[in-house]
Nucleic acid binder design. Structure first.
Length: 507
RNA sequence: GGUCUGGUGGCCGAGUGGCUAGGCUCAGCUCUGCAAAAGCUGCUACAGCGGUUCGAAUCCGCUCCAGACCUCCA
């Protein structure tokens, strides 16, 4: 897994980068707080089960952001947390800690759960060629800092203790701050929307959220604090770890659309409530959901695929298996801010489209420049293609447009290979640059064939076979020519007859 | 009910005032011993209704439809 090549200085193209900011709901020019450094925080997974493709889409979105910022020359510190405590089951069952519950069900240590699914998460990230972040902190590794932040929030008057638990006083905070600015919610509406208080509730107001929860001995994961033995609230870890590693104000905060409320709204309140600094995050980026037959992919719907099911095709909703690169490409053909529907025809279209792109990319390696002094007519304008590639990425990371631009390059490569167009040395090297930087570094596309082809010996063997076949063809010995072609095809080697002899590709 | 997204051709999916994606599919053609690949051409749409404008898929209003979110032991 290769990180993008980072230039020594910030690219001149960086000045045109615009980011769709979910806080302002506008596309804004990207101006880092202290260039060349960029701080980016993304909410990572809660490691109590296998990740599914919907999760993958979110992390892929920020992989593209990360890769492009690096490509532009920024020194990015990318922090993506692992939630290993505090995320409660929010639905109708019991509101237990998700990890604690799983540990109890399987009768093992919570940390075994955490380790197992963290490993799984990393494996999945790897097969989709998603780069690891600079720092991957865990909630349990930052209990001390979380307690410290709670204390600050209480000191500042925005938190209160009730029976050993601590809550954030939303109404108090909203007196002087715009709670709801990110999600567009108003606290009066929230108030009326919230389910009725039951008499046991320790919260002063139903819209308050927990910073610390007291826990009895049946809880597997609990820590001492000034208020009680218990555990931190889910929203707290992200505030704590982003502040610790990126500062009280930082550039980019990302996550899935479904985290906008309450999670991110609460994060802002906590950061501001503890640090007193308004606007802790400059640019909020939210990746949209992956749907299946129009429904959000989720475990409870039974419409989530694990990577294994995806690759083998062993799932009732899959007609066949698809490679991770196919899925990566498929996801990048849609913009991150829109929903994307996962379907078999769409996947098959992506598979074929990717194959055409990759075949052309391989063909580029063998392209010969037009001879010195020879005319390159008609000569395609490859510099314009590069400019359009940057324009696409600068427009809020518009990968679908970038892919469309790459297909223009595909057309050029194929035309040159077929002798219909000509390129000089410089033109060819520009195309190399386009594919290496945009397809490989930024989109993270890579050839999936492993081990076969590419080395000198294979090339030599192929040359011999092609020469023999060319000889057979010139003798009109079609039987021999077809035998060579067919036997190679059985092995996954495809011969293509062009104007200047045959070329070959591997499946 | 509230908040937020969206509704684009056979399918997927860009595009936010005039030029205008791209991929896949289908049909025809070129090339070709045949095939594959590649290239060319065609099929060419913006949920509905009204408004603004010289001009709207794009802006405004309304309607219809779809999805997400609405929080801690509800």
């Amino acid at each position: 897994m290769d990180a993008p090549q980072r230039p020594d200085a910030i690219s001149s193209f960086a000045a045109d980068l615009h980011i769709g900011n979910s806080l302002s709901r506008k596309k804004e020019p990207f101006e880092p707080i202290s260039a060349p450094y960029v701080g980016m925080y993304v909410c990572g997974p809660t490691v109590y089960s296998n990740v599914h493709l919907g999760n993958v889409r979110t992390f892929l979105t920020f992989d593209i952001v990360y890769r492009y910022l690096i490509h532009l020359g920024y020194k990015v510190r990318y922090v993506r947390n692992i939630t290993d405590v505090g995320h409660l089951t929010g639905d109708s069952d019991d509101g237990e800690d998700k990890i604690g519950k799983k540990a109890r069900l399987e009768n093992i240590e919570p940390m075994e759960i955490v380790q197992r699914y963290t490993n799984d998460f990393h494996d999945v990230m790897r097969i989709f060629n998603i780069l690891p972040p600079s720092i991957e902190p865990t909630a349990t590794g930052h209990i001390v800092e979380q307690i410290d932040m709670i204390s600050k929030i209480i000191e500042n008057g925005y938190g209160y203790e009730a029976n050993g638990s601590v809550y954030f006083n939303v109404r108090k905070f909203a007196e002087s701050h715009d709670y709801g600015a990110l999600s567009g919610r108003r606290i009066d509406e929230l108030q009326s929307q919230t389910r009725a208080l039951d008499g046991q509730d320790e919260k002063r107001d139903p819209i308050d959220f927990a910073l610390w929860k007291k826990a009895d001995e049946s809880h597997l994961m609990r820590w001492p604090s000034p208020w009680s033995v218990g555990f931190p609230g889910w929203h707290l870890e992200c505030s704590v770890m982003s502040t610790k590693y990126l500062g009280q104000s930082f550039d980019i905060h990302g996550g899935g659309m479904d985290l906008k409320f309450p999670h991110h709204e609460c994060e802002i309140a906590q950061n501001v409530g503890a640090n007193g600094k308004a606007d802790p995050v400059r640019y909020w980026i939210h990746g949209n959901m992956l749907t299946v037959n129009g429904r959000k992919m989720s475990k409870s719907e039974g419409n989530g695929f694990t990577p294994d099911e995806l690759i083998t095709g062993n799932h009732k909703l899959l007609e066949k298996g698809y490679s991770p690169m196919t899925v990566r490409f498929f996801m990048l053909q849609g913009h991150y801010a829109g929903t994307l529907d996962f379907s078999n025809p769409a996947l098959q279209a992506a598979e074929k489209g990717l194959e055409r792109l990759m075949t052309s990319w391989r063909l580029l390696e063998k392209l010969k420049p037009v001879a010195e002094g020879g005319s390159a007519d008609p000569a395609p304008d490859v510099d314009a293609i590069i400019a359009r590639a940057y324009a696409a990425m600068n427009d809020d990371f518009n990968t679908p447009i970038l892919i469309a631009v790459l297909y223009d390059a595909v057309k050029v490569v194929n035309s040159v290979a077929a002798g219909r167009m000509a390129l000089d040395e410089k033109g060819i090297s520009t195309l190399h640059h386009l594919f290496d930087r945009f397809a490989k570094d930024i989109l993270g596309l890579q050839h999936e064939d492993v081990g076969d082809g590419g080395d000198d010996r294979t090339d030599g063997l192929m040359e011999v076979l092609c020469t023999l076949r060319a000889e057979a063809k010139s003798n009109q010995d079609w039987a021999t020519a077809d035998l060579i072609r067919n036997r190679l095809a059985e092995m996954g080697v495809n011969i293509k007859d062009g104007k200047d002899g045959a070329s070959w590709t591997f499946d």
